[in-house]
Design a protein around this nucleic acid. Structure first.
Length: 478
RNA sequence: CGGGGUGUGGCGCAGGUGGAAGCGCGCGGCGUUUGGGACGCCGAGGUCGUAGGUUCAAGUCCUAUCACCCCGACCA
């Protein structure tokens, strides 16, 4: 096998496809567009899950599970929703050897079936808010797929809440958006921008959609999470009503929000470099790999003994550490292998280290060959914990610097067109669907989101020149 | 669905004008090795995407078909 990886800077797309497979994250399935998530990749997903799940619980949400199959008629109850999703539906028409009276849709998202249940569960303002999340798989018949970024079946969480007022629903939508951003930034070390989606980019059936957007290593944008204010659309379609304090029947106000296995793709594409993955310590299945180095049998015993104590000590400190004792590979081979798998910190222990009571630590976030340093054995625990925190921060800072240096504010449309060929544009925009469609047609870039709380002001739409009160990010997106 | 490309051991590939299926990596065994992708010897592994056709003879030529990948449109 050619041991070099496709060029990160020149062929990002191939680099991504190769690294996903070579780092053992996922594999292609026999079914087009689907993927097999391998243990190392699944551990990454589990890190995403636990980071989010903890935050959901802290904000009062509980988990539940709704069925995979949804009666076709449910989808049809909300017109924008069915229009948006019908091209992407997988439909079961037969079961038990017979044609079904009503086809069952394999859920592309669960607003409808959850709306149906909520109609039965909610009666009084005292039942509100209802804050439920589910971890599930969904299916969308995508035309063009890519491991983790867009597969026909993917794993995600979908939160579905109902509230007594518009205000509460809007607050929930924004709370979750902030929660997503906090997870992305603090845990995944991905600096995201957040904001409102344009009319054409919003979720089918929503009043308002918000998203977090991240810049990948090739400067394209990736929507890494969405939060929708559904208004009363689904409540009206499914008759989700409650009696308020004045004994009057009201429709509930709903939200829904999701983050998927795509987040794993984002982690790969934001942090990866020419050598392979670079995982933020908080996400990394293996935070520290220990590579023992020895020649003869005597050395081996001494080194392994020393290393065993080190591993125990780090484990006790709560560090996810792996001892690479494989006999069939040389240390050099292991260095490359673990660099490709993105392990944040590598510790090399040979006779030299044992004799000097030291460790050699190599940071994955530093340029290749530059991150080695010597650490006193006695200070191993403290140093490792400190280094991991430093690496977490450094990966974030590198991604932030990269992102910010590739976002530019165009003065005119000519400049805009150039900017979005290789970066993001932050530009005044009238918000018009026509302008956006034209921009997409001429540049293939789309609006990513309109940040809230932007400095107020007035400008001219980058495309049509009309007076505009808001700016939006525009970029080519995945 | 439009445009481009590729199908040959597990992976990456080579196989002008038809004439006994090869190379590298990986894999198994034995031995020597081990501080940035070690080496030697032996060995296993392929109905050349599929179906037709031309021919004494097809990986190679013709026809059809399928799959996958890349670039767009749909999308988390």
């Amino acid at each position: 096998m050619d041991q070099r990886l496709a060029s990160h800077s020149e062929d990002f797309s191939s680099w991504y496809n190769e690294i996903v497979q070579r780092a053992d994250l996922a594999d292609y399935s026999p079914v087009r567009g689907c993927m097999v998530i391998k243990p190392y990749g699944y551990e990454l997903w589990e890190a995403v899950k636990s980071g989010l799940d903890r935050r959901f619980k802290e904000t009062g949400h509980v988990n539940a599970y709704f069925p995979l199959f949804i009666p076709m008629s449910f989808l049809e109850k909300e017109s924008e929703h069915v229009e948006g999703f019908s091209p992407q539906l997988a439909v079961v028409t037969h079961g038990g050897g017979k044609e079904l009276e009503e086809p069952l849709v394999v859920r592309p998202t669960s607003e409808t079936i959850i709306g149906h249940m909520y109609a039965q569960w909610v009666h009084s303002y005292r039942d509100l808010p209802l804050l439920i999340n589910q971890w599930a798989n969904v299916v969308r018949w995508e035309l063009r797929t890519r491991l983790f970024l867009r597969t026909m079946e993917f794993l995600w969480q979908e939160g579905h809440t109902v509230h007594a007022t518009y205000q509460e629903a809007e607050e929930e939508t924004r709370r979750i958006l902030d929660l997503y951003a906090d997870f992305a930034i603090s845990d995944a070390a991905i600096p995201v921008v957040l904001g409102r989606k344009s009319e054409s980019e919003k979720f089918p059936g929503a009043l308002t959609s918000y998203s977090i957007e991240a810049m990948m290593g090739d400067k394209r944008a990736l929507q890494a999470g969405t939060s929708h204010n559904l208004g009363q659309n689904f409540a009206k379609a499914f008759d989700v009503t409650f009696l308020d304090e004045h004994n009057e029947t009201q429709y509930c106000w709903g939200t829904s929000w999701g983050v998927s296995t795509r987040m794993v793709g984002a982690i790969i594409m934001v942090h990866g470099d020419a050598q392979g993955l670079r995982l933020p310590p908080l996400m990394a299945p293996v935070q520290v790999v220990v590579v023992p180095i020895y020649r003869g049998g005597d050395e081996k015993n001494t080194v392994l003994e020393s290393v065993a104590a080190l591993v125990r000590e780090l484990k006790d400190a709560g560090v996810r550490v792996f001892l690479d004792q494989r006999e069939e590979y040389t240390p050099g081979w292991k260095f490359n292998d673990w660099e490709m798998r993105g392990v944040p910190l590598r510790i090399e222990v040979g006779p030299r280290e044992v004799a000097e009571q030291k460790l050699t630590c190599a940071r994955r976030d530093a340029p290749r060959g530059k991150g080695k340093r010597s650490v006193l054995r006695a200070e191993a625990k403290e140093e490792v914990v400190r280094l991991l925190a430093e690496i977490q921060q450094s990966l974030h800072d590198q991604a932030l610097a990269f992102r910010d240096s590739n976002i530019k504010e165009p003065k005119d449309y000519g400049e805009f067109k150039e900017i979005v060929q290789d970066g993001w544009a932050y530009a005044w925009w009238c918000g018009g669907t026509k302008c956006e469609a034209k921009i997409q047609e001429e540049t293939t870039a789309t609006s990513r989101c309109i940040p809230p709380d932007q400095e107020t002001g007035e400008g001219r739409c980058i495309y049509c020149g009309e007076k505009s009160s808001e700016r939006a990010y525009f970029a080519k997106a995945y």
